[in-house]
Design a protein around this nucleic acid. Structure first.
Length: 839
RNA sequence: GCCGGUGUGGCGAAAUGGCAGACGCGACGGACUCAAAAUCCGUUUCCCCCUAAAGGAGUGUCGGUUCGAGUCCGACCACCGGCACCA
């Protein structure tokens, strides 16, 4: 049977599905002591079509899942849909199609595409976050977190568009305007719900050390969490108010010449009420868009009428409102020490403030020895901090702050999980009762793109009773950030039908932690912090065990076209479907895995690479066919005379093969011809190498080159090798299993052509035979002064002393040794090399 | 600016401190063919050389450690990514 992927692949996919070979076991079905492997890919957004990034991601996961199954692991390999969020709501506004219908259609289409790839997902565990049997558990977990005190309400500014009467996401705001309508957008505070992520800041930081994650992701998370040790210090204002600052350099306290407060600081806001010019300044700062704030670092300040008093000297210190002080970091106020802080320095120069030096150090921003600091003069910075805190009494204390913020989860949107709370005139904000879940999204809403969230227009949704006092009340209309959906979805896969709990602990204990998580680097901070946070919360609620959800993480590189990201607007999309309908899924999978290491970008420059992949698959198919036509290997009753004549031997280029059928199994090692032995050694070395690549190194591209090398070795076996049939049968049998994770469809076809029973994907991964890992004679490289001068062949068993002697005796080395004094001879472990040092 | 990553043939890349360029793509030459496609065989880092043998150089640059460095250490350069007034 030739290589006909377009015909064969759908048929083979049907056999897989019918056999249930992708199904993962429930905890109760797992035999005691069985090894489990949880292979997870990041939850995709159902945009409508899969792209090459998905193909890369899912192929990699599938290779791992299939490999682990063959290695005897119980494998969990599920997929679902991150199916709430803005695009569906935008489609509703634009095309008048309900988000649910749009979403369902997209999921169906993408699922079909993914199934054509032959990815071994257990579709019985498929989940979609927009369905109420999923999002009810978001609500349930929200209530649990509410009870545990991990949820609170507070004000936070949002992008508010007055004309539309609606809140916009950051990505919808361009140049301070709504990207769709161009209406102006302002910052407006709104009361919102928050998860207390900062409660776990220290643990999130500490646990990073134990994770097998890429260093750059760990670094990004450390930076994101941004732990910073310093001190909190209270300054008295002249009018009796107090302002707290956070500083990492309390030792520079005597260098304070001003205070800078955020324009949103309560003291400034209060002062602005009676100071029109201050008010104007604050408004001006507030108008600057988020974008501009990121790109411009011009420091602006406004001198207020207020002065603060220096805690030690009692001197008056002017108080400024400044654009470079952030309200949501530290206390929203800093003490300005221009001599020893770069930003304060710039500010002081601009506003003509004194810059007294109080630290003697190598550079102005370093720690050092205090000068001009009253009784603290002469102390080292570190000691001065402790001494000052002691002296300042309850005005100061050591504290730690974090850049990590609490997670604002409110969205003023329709297409999300309704937050399960109720507003009651007498009881305030009250959580819904767990037995009333799910709080479903109503259908009777209009999508206009303006005005408040569509939820506020649905009376069937809005009107309810207070869970506490029973009087009429109205529902919360905020929905949850979609990051909530993706913060625990991998646990729902483990128990997707559970109607009592989000998932049973027995299931999570059986499968967690995830052994390999693969996804894009763009999720390095947000998603991967939120998910880790949720897992810690779940642990503390007694729902899951273990500190961390994802033991190993791989971040795949992007798939580019002509050096830039594929996108609809650039019109440079390569549709996976097109490739599959021309070359088949196996060729695409093989190419994707082979093209580059997984973490690097790959540029889809053309179809040459995939042509090569396809050629390789054809070659190996032909080899199996030729072998089968020659009578196969181990058919014990085959009669050489009945076997059809072998076709001209296209592969090796040798003369036509005699029907090299053998009735015997593989002969003993010492009966084999040298080329046969060499092939079997290559085979076993390849088995060892690929196993290591897949199991320990997680290096996938070399798996494909290993397969190619082995196929070249197979093609080189002479047609008249005495035990050709038996050797080829042995080698092809293993080869087909080795290729099965990467090119699973063709592997199944070849497996049956080799007359092997059952599905190749359920066969056992080959084991390397130690007897065939090393040739009888091995090559030893001879170096003289670090340069390779010769190669010698020695028996594999030769001891170090013999290797050394043989190396010294070899003529090429001799030529470089003549007339020199041998200083040293090094034979490293393994004995593959002898290094001679001469003078 | 800070943090991280990457730098190896014409291209994608391999080399787990021990033979640099495996494997593939492309290119060139050849076989098969009336011809083409497909397939197969061969060549393909640079210098020297008719060729080969034998040399020499070579993994962004400069230094270091080591018997031995693409790999480890230090400084620098270039590119890519992330973050960014974090007190």
């Amino acid at each position: 049977m030739p290589f006909q992927p377009l015909v064969q692949e759908p048929e083979i996919q049907r056999r897989w599905l019918e056999s249930g070979a992708f199904r993962a076991k429930r905890a109760s079905e797992l035999l005691p002591g069985s090894k489990t492997f949880y292979m997870l890919v990041m939850l995709p957004y159902p945009s409508g079509r899969i792209h090459m990034g998905h193909v890369r991601n899912y192929t990699l996961g599938d290779v791992t899942a299939r490999f682990r199954r063959m290695r005897g692991y119980e494998v969990m390999h599920p997929l679902g849909w991150d199916s709430f969020g803005l695009p569906a709501e935008n489609a509703a506004i634009k095309h008048g199609i309900h988000p649910a219908i749009w979403t369902r259609k997209n999921i169906e289409e993408m699922k079909g595409q993914i199934q054509k790839m032959g990815i071994s997902y257990d579709w019985e565990r498929e989940i979609a976050s927009f369905q109420d049997d999923y999002y009810r558990w978001n609500q349930w977990l929200f209530l649990k977190m509410w009870e545990a005190g991990d949820v609170f309400r507070a004000m936070r500014t949002v992008n508010w568009c007055e004309e539309l009467g609606t809140v916009l996401a950051n990505e919808q705001v361009v140049d301070g305007k709504d990207e769709r309508t161009g209406h102006p957008v302002v910052q407006k505070p709104l009361e919102q719900y928050f998860f207390k992520t900062t409660k776990y800041a220290d643990e999130l930081l500490a646990c990073l050390d134990g994770l097998d994650w890429p260093d750059n992701v760990k670094t990004m998370q450390r930076y994101w969490i941004g732990r910073s040790e310093g001190a909190r210090l209270a300054f008295d204002l002249e009018d009796g108010q107090r302002v707290e600052v956070f500083t990492t350099r309390l030792d520079t306290l005597f260098g304070v010449t001003f205070m800078a407060l955020s324009t949103e600081h309560p003291v400034i806001e209060k002062a602005a009420q009676s100071d029109p010019s201050l008010k104007a300044f604050c408004d001006q700062v507030a108008r600057v868009s988020h974008e501009e704030r990121l790109t411009s670092d011009v420091k602006l300040g406004h001198r207020t009428a207020i002065s603060a008093l220096h805690p030690f000297t009692g001197e008056k210190v002017p108080v400024f409102a400044a654009n470079y002080v952030l309200m949501d970091y530290g206390t929203g106020a800093v003490m300005g020490v221009p001599a020893h802080d770069e930003r304060d320095h710039e500010f002081a120069l601009k506003y003509g403030l004194p810059i007294p030096k109080v630290i003697e150090a190598e550079s102005a921003w370093d720690l050092g020895t205090l000068v001009n600091s009253g009784e603290f003069t002469g102390l080292r910075s570190e000691d001065a901090v402790a001494a000052m805190i002691a002296k300042l009494g309850d005005r100061a204390e050591k504290t730690t702050t974090y850049k990590l913020k609490d997670w604002g989860l409110s969205r003023q949107r329709y297409w999300g999980t309704p937050i399960p709370t109720v507003h009651c005139d007498s009881c305030g904000v009250v959580p819904e009762k767990a037995e009333n879940l799910p709080v479903r999204l109503p259908e009777d809403v209009a999508f206009t793109g303006h005005g408040p969230s569509p939820l506020t227009t649905s009376s069937s949704f809005l009107d309810t009773k207070c869970p506490s006092c029973g009087r009429p009340a109205h529902r919360e209309t905020d929905t949850m950030d979609t990051f909530v959906d993706s913060s625990w979805y991998w646990l729902r896969y483990l128990d997707p039908k559970n109607a009592q709990l989000p998932f049973a602990k027995t299931e999570s204990d059986a499968w967690m932690p995830v052994d390999l998580y693969v996804g894009g680097i763009e999720h390095a901070t947000m998603h991967l912090i939120y998910a880790r946070f949720f897992y810690k919360v779940l642990r503390d609620l007694g729902l899951a065990s273990g500190p961390e959800p994802f033991q190993k993480l791989i971040c795949q590189g992007m798939v580019l076209k002509d050096g830039s990201k594929m996108s609809k607007s650039k019109g440079n999309i390569v549709d996976p479907d097109e490739v599959i309908s021309k070359y088949g899924a196996d060729a695409l999978r093989l190419f994707m895995i082979f093209a580059a290491p997984i973490e690097k970008e790959i540029d889809w420059t053309g179809f040459e690479g995939i042509e090569g992949a396809s050629r390789f698959l054809k070659r190996i198919t032909r080899m199996v066919e030729d072998h089968a036509n020659a009578g196969g290997g181990d058919r014990l009753f085959a009669d050489a005379h009945d076997v059809p004549p072998a076709p001209p031997h296209a592969v090796s280029g040798q003369s036509p093969a005699p029907a090299s059928v053998t009735a015997e199994p593989l002969p003993a090692k010492n009966q084999l011809a040298p080329e046969e032995k060499a092939l079997l050694i290559k085979l076993n070395q390849t088995i060892a190498r690929l196993t290591d690549d897949l199991e320990r190194r997680y290096q996938f591209n070399t798996v494909v080159s290993g397969l190619m090398e082995l196929s070249n070795a197979l093609a080189d076996l002479p047609a008249d090798a005495p035990h050709r049939g038996a050797v080829m049968q042995q080698a092809l049998d293993a080869f087909v299993r080795l290729m099965s994770p990467v090119a699973p469809h063709l592997a199944e076809q070849l497996w049956s052509q080799l007359d092997r029973p059952g599905l190749c994907m359920q066969a056992t991964w080959p084991e390397a035979d130690p007897a065939f890992l090393e040739a009888d004679e091995v090559t030893v490289v001879v170096q003289v002064n670090g340069k390779v001068r010769g190669r010698i062949s020695v028996p594999a068993a030769a001891p170090e002393e013999a290797r050394r002697a043989a190396a010294l005796a070899c003529p090429e080395a001799q030529a470089h040794l003549a007339g020199k004094e041998i200083v040293k001879v090094v034979v490293p472990a393994g004995g593959k090399l002898v290094s001679i040092v001469v003078k």
